[in-house]
Structure formats: structure tokens, C-alpha cells
Design a protein around this nucleic acid. Structure first.
Lengths: 113, 113
DNA sequence: ATTATATTTGACGAATTCTGTCAAGTCAAT
DNA sequence: ATTGACTTGACAGAATTCGTCAAATATAAT
């Protein structure tokens, strides 16, 4: 996903938001979860912030570890994937923002500080 | 796409089905369309049968060539992509769509146009 | 049936995207 | 300024997608 599209949508996906919530409510550290699941800490961090999407197996393992409803998490995860595809099509908005960004940059460069 | 998933869904996607219809109604051959669009005949054949998914630009070019409604084709194409993802998780699909729908509603309510 | 034409299929290397990992980074609290 | 929790960016390897080609199949006409 391009950065500009990322910024249009909320950073946290449905799935990531939920597992972070579950983890924090249990007072578990990323590093502990990572160790138990044998997944790199950085990767779980990215899952929670929606920067990366886990695969089906990882979702299931995460659900088991958090003692969470597997179907709930799989559903949120699926919703994220659909939402991602749809958001890719907002490329017109993206282009528009790029143009504005370029123009702002030019402005500030011209009126030197 | 895995074979098992392929067999769950009809071979022809929404998009492919429609452009084949449009092309045949105009009496245009694959090879002619291919030549005009500078896309390999085999590839367009695959598009029509839903074996491959075109990218956004190809959809637009195809629409222009067929003098078809660009938005209609883009929508069908997008629907195919969503349908593909969901086909892997049939049982959860409905719930996921509800979530996405809710979020879209929220989005449009927040970022007033 | 033979030929000609249209479409489909499978396989391939190239290009692109995705994945997990690492090291370095920020940030807050002590 | 040290520690602890998390984040970030970059990387190489894996996996997937891409367009192309040649061969196979289907369709039509003679």
C-alpha cells in the first residue's frame, strides 16, 4: 500500500486493534507474546498496527494464545483484507493529495525561510 | 488461485463475463481486441474467463476500447477481487462485509465531502 | 475430411510483492 | 543516562503474479 493511501485510512486495522486490546488487558508484553508464539516481536507489533497482515494460521495461533474467540479474530482479519482492496481504489484521492503535497513543497521552497 | 477455490466459484468472474458479452455483441475478435490494446490474445482470453485479473489500467483501456461504462467495469472488477478473498473464508464472509460496510459509513460521515 | 480461423491451455522466466528478521531508533519512566 | 517496551526501515529470500509463447483444442467453412 502506498504511504498516501495508508494515511487516508486509520492505521490500525480491525484485527490489530482488537488483539492489542486483548493483549494489553491481560498485561502481556509484545515480547512475551512473541516468545510464546515464536514470532518476531517486530512482526507482532506490525500486526497490531495493521502494517502487516498475518496469515490464517497466525491468526489462529494468536487467538489461541490470547484465549480469544477464533472466529471473531478471523472475521476481523478478513474484514481488513477486503477493506484493503477497496481502499486501493481510492487512487484518485491519492493522486489529488500528491499534487497538493507537491504544491505545498514548492511554495515553502520559493518563499525561503 | 487454488483449484479448490476456483471450483467453488463460477469460472467466469463478473468482469470477464461482462466484457466477453460486450465484445461478442460488437462482433469483435479476441485477436482484434488484443492487437488494438497491445495485450496478448491469451491474456485477454484469461481475463474473460476470470483466470487472470487485469490491473486498473487494463480495465480502463478495455472499457475505452469497448466504449463501455468505465465505472461499471471497474466496479465489476473490484467485486471480483473482493469475492476472491472472501471465497477463501465463506463462513465468515457475511460478518466481514458488515464490518466493512459499517466502517465505510463511518468514513463518509467523518470526512464530509 | 481438410483447411482455416478463433480461442484456450500450460509452461516459462521476469518482474513484482510479501515475509520474517535484524539493527537501530524513539519514547517514557526511573 | 539507563532501562524497558515498542517501532521503524531496510534487507534478502520466498512466494506470487505477470506477460509471452507455442502447442492444443474448438469452431466454421468448403
Amino acid at each position: 500500500m502506498t504511504n498516501s493511501v495508508k494515511s487516508i485510512f486509520s492505521q490500525l486495522g480491525n484485527f490489530g486493534q482488537r488483539i492489542r486490546e486483548l493483549r494489553e488487558n491481560k498485561g502481556i508484553l509484545l515480547r512475551q507474546m512473541a516468545a510464546s508464539l515464536e514470532i518476531d516481536t517486530a512482526l507482532i507489533s506490525k500486526f497490531e498496527r495493521g502494517e502487516r497482515k498475518p496469515n490464517r494460521e497466525q491468526v489462529k495461533r494468536i487467538a489461541r494464545f490470547l484465549k480469544a474467540d477464533k472466529n471473531e479474530l478471523l472475521t476481523l482479519w478478513l474484514a481488513d483484507r477486503v477493506q484493503y482492496i477497496i481502499s486501493e481504489e481510492m487512487s484518485l484521492a491519492e493522486e489529488a493529495l500528491e499534487i497538493v503535497k507537491r504544491n505545498i513543497k514548492d511554495e515553502t521552497r520559493t518563499h525561503t525561510d
